[in-house]
Design a protein around this nucleic acid. Structure first.
Lengths: 173, 173
DNA sequence: GGAGATGGGACAGCCATATTGACGTATCTT
DNA sequence: AAGATACGTCAATATGGCTGTCCCATCTCC
């Protein structure tokens, strides 16, 4: 067919370029990352809507569940948003009784965030959807693919953030 | 330490549960997917800001570049947004001379979307950042990891959407 | 003990991106 | 000719970000 090949509308013939495969591989990764991320994310929207919350609330909930007693500034760094934005989210969560705070022990200016029992129950319920999606993708792909999946994604995280991510996962090295 | 283990604040001792590893693996995937996606995405913000555009514009630009002459309804399906939302984005893009439309050949109600020469140049420039990020992650992980990365992500895309994704990538089977 | 730095909170206003609902027009199908 | 389809548009609303500014409590350091 005379239809232009993808992403080469004004370029050379696709198979002539030595970079063609590389570009195809990159685009494939970009697209799968986009669709994989958005579809997994969508899987929790229904559960969130039941509580009148959004994805921003889930992200906070998730990381507080993941690392109880983390401080507001740690959470800010993880989420990469401003404290005003996070403030709104945390207010919503605590007014619903899902999150509670205590003053820091060594530094009383800090607030240590953790989930209430209701918060744990809610996060667990939302996590079910994530678990289902990830588990079936893992199962279909096999263990070797899983480690490859992790390795590539780690490489996508900039050096300066990688420690933060691995620390969440108990890989302090 | 007596600090509660992540995600088991009210649960059993982490190493006692037979599901612990699985939960850890799932959370690791969820987190890496989140950080990998957001960090890659951020890498194009600067380029977009130069044109006064946002990520929504880039997504449209990307998929039009990827599959020239796709129709509005095809793009709507790919992006999973409403036509009102897409309408605004497409208006921005065509008023900047980045996207042009032609009437469909077999069905003149359709509009076939493609990039102008300026649009191609701009998308190519943005793609550079994506290529850099993905390429270095690919290079660091190795070919076997790359295929694993793809396999897991494919598994995250629901059955009903998988054909659409693979078609973009020229894998019509 | 006092000065300044830091952790956290809050008010105000704005922007980007999405939504629902209703309606209009051109074109295709039957 | 009638209805369905592809696309566009107006209007109102929600979400989740942002900047700027100011505040209080507490810690650190001289």
């Amino acid at each position: 067919m005379a239809v232009p090949s993808p992403a080469s509308q004004f370029g050379a013939s696709p198979n002539a370029s030595p970079l063609f495969l590389r570009e195809e591989e990159v685009r494939r990764g970009v697209e799968l990352l986009y669709f994989g991320y958005t579809r997994l994310t969508r899987s929790i929207d229904e559960g969130l809507a039941l509580e009148g919350l959004g994805r921003a609330h889930h992200r906070a909930l998730y990381f507080i569940a993941r690392q109880p007693d983390l401080t507001v500034s740690q959470l800010l760094k993880i989420l990469g948003i401003t404290k005003q934005s996070l403030g709104r989210v945390l207010n919503d969560l605590s007014s619903r009784g899902l999150v509670e705070t205590r003053a820091g022990t060594s530094d009383r200016r800090q607030k240590l965030l953790r989930l209430t029992a209701e918060g744990v129950a809610f996060e667990t319920q939302l996590f079910e959807a994530l678990r289902n999606g990830m588990s079936s993708a893992y199962a279909a792909a096999g263990q070797e693919s899983i480690t490859g999946f992790w390795r590539v994604l780690e490489g996508l995280v900039p050096e300066e953030d990688r420690g933060m991510v691995l620390k969440l996962q108990g890989m302090d090295t």
